[in-house]
Computed example of a mutant assay.
Amino acid sequence: MFKIRRSEDKDFVTFVLSGRIEEEQLSELQKLLKVELGANPTPIALDLGDVKLVDREAIKFFAVCEAHGVVIKNCPSYVREWIETGRGSNEP
């Protein structure tokens, strides 16, 4: 089961993600980020500490988020490795 919890402090608006993140869940997360970016200049972070499984599309999404200044916190090492590997890929 995929869950998103929003928290805010003086430094970041953080979305704590938990469960499995697959392509089907990304549209919901994209909408939340778009609303947050439009409404608030506070930097955004994604906390992946409770993420159990991600698919390829989620990895691409996280790489794009980072490229646009979103901070990824508590990223599992295997996800970090895949994000870094995916950045060098020429695949769409």
Score class of each variant (00 low, 15 high):
64 V>D: 05
40 N>C: 15
7 S>D: 08
5 R>E: 09
7 S>R: 15
90 N>C: 13
9 D>W: 13
32 L>H: 15
22 E>A: 15
81 E>R: 11
67 A>T: 13
77 S>K: 13
40 N>R: 13
59 I>Y: 01
57 E>Y: 04
39 A>Q: 11
25 Q>H: 07
85 T>Y: 14
1 M>G: 11
47 D>P: 08
81 E>I: 09
7 S>C: 12
72 I>D: 00
84 E>S: 15
23 E>P: 10
43 P>S: 03
40 N>K: 13
11 D>K: 12
78 Y>F: 12
23 E>L: 08
11 D>H: 12
34 K>G: 14
82 W>G: 01
43 P>Q: 02
41 P>T: 05
45 A>G: 05
25 Q>M: 02
47 D>Y: 09
37 L>Y: 14
83 I>R: 01
22 E>F: 11
43 P>F: 02
30 Q>I: 09
54 V>R: 06
31 K>E: 15
73 K>F: 11
44 I>T: 14
35 V>F: 08
29 L>H: 05
41 P>Y: 05
74 N>R: 08
46 L>V: 07
41 P>D: 08
8 E>Q: 09
29 L>P: 07
57 E>T: 03
82 W>P: 00
42 T>L: 15
31 K>M: 11
55 D>G: 06
80 R>Y: 03
64 V>Y: 02
68 H>T: 00
38 G>P: 01
47 D>N: 10
86 G>Y: 14
34 K>F: 08
22 E>I: 14
64 V>C: 04
30 Q>P: 03
47 D>V: 15
10 K>F: 02
89 S>D: 14
70 V>C: 07
84 E>I: 10
55 D>H: 00
20 R>E: 05
42 T>M: 07
76 P>Q: 03
73 K>G: 08
73 K>N: 13
78 Y>T: 15
14 T>F: 04
75 C>V: 10
41 P>Q: 08
31 K>H: 12
55 D>R: 00
21 I>S: 14
57 E>W: 02
67 A>S: 09
56 R>T: 12
37 L>S: 13
42 T>D: 01
83 I>K: 01
38 G>L: 06
50 D>T: 10
77 S>C: 10
16 V>E: 13
66 E>L: 07
55 D>W: 01
71 V>C: 03
69 G>A: 00
48 L>W: 07
24 E>S: 07
67 A>C: 09
10 K>L: 06
65 C>W: 10
44 I>E: 11
79 V>E: 01
85 T>H: 14
85 T>K: 14
23 E>V: 09
65 C>G: 15
92 P>W: 00
83 I>S: 00
82 W>L: 08
71 V>I: 11
69 G>N: 02
23 E>W: 14
8 E>L: 04
70 V>P: 05
47 D>R: 07
69 G>V: 00
76 P>H: 03
75 C>S: 09
46 L>F: 08
90 N>G: 12
41 P>H: 05
59 I>L: 02
82 W>D: 04
5 R>P: 06
56 R>D: 03
20 R>M: 03
77 S>H: 10
57 E>K: 04
62 F>T: 04
69 G>Q: 01
25 Q>A: 11
